[in-house]
Design a protein around this nucleic acid. Structure first.
Lengths: 110, 110
DNA sequence: CTGCATCCGCAAGGATACTG
DNA sequence: CAGTATCCTTGCGGATGCAG
């Protein structure tokens, strides 16, 4: 358990801290499609390293945005899914995505 | 002009990059109330240093989310305001803020 | 398959002093 | 008032290897 020395200045600050970081948004976004296994997530989030994937998932889990379900099998199997709280964030991300889409098209970015 | 080596993996990625960073969200949020001068912003964003304020404002300006208006007077006067594009993000931040508010109240965070 | 351990570089951010 | 300039610290994130 690391020290939670986070200083939140306002609600907006708190909110951004939950979905900030390099991959949190993308992970939540792909999980919107339903339950995914670790390997599936890794393939979905292009460019992420196992370390960052695990680390980010743990943070999301600590914030209760995703749920982690472990199957005691061989080979191991772990599934990740959005929690109720996590699902509440999807509409926002969708909105941001739509905004970004427009911006990129206007600026002719591939 | 710094090198734009940003690699965007998807729309969500792009969107988060516009509003990521430590202060972008908070600055956009306080600017929602209307035009503000540099010093007013500095007082509104508790804890920010002049360096970070200027730097972040420049980035928001480059992304055309805020507009910078300079008055050639003595003493100097500079006003910052949301652009049309910037205003489009406000609903998103507003919802995120509301979500964060609920979360914090549930978890009894001061 | 699903991770954890370790080392490391770099860029984001902070502190302080100074300027037109 | 509205920034610059400079230096310094932190920790995010990358790379690689190992483990149950």
């Amino acid at each position: 358990m690391k020290n939670n020395k986070e200083i939140v200045h306002c609600f907006v600050d708190y909110g951004f801290k939950r979905i900030g970081g390099k991959y949190k948004g993308r992970i939540l976004w792909v999980l919107k499609g339903g339950v995914l296994r670790y390997g599936e997530l890794k393939r979905a989030i292009v460019g992420i390293t196992p370390k960052m994937l695990t680390q980010t998932l743990r943070e999301l889990e600590a914030d209760e945005l995703v749920h982690r379900k472990v199957y005691l099998e061989v080979p191991p199997k772990v599934e990740y899914a959005l929690t109720t709280t996590g699902k509440e964030l999807i509409p926002f991300i969708e909105q941001l995505r739509s905004w970004a889409k427009n911006q990129m098209e206007q600026k002719n970015i591939t």
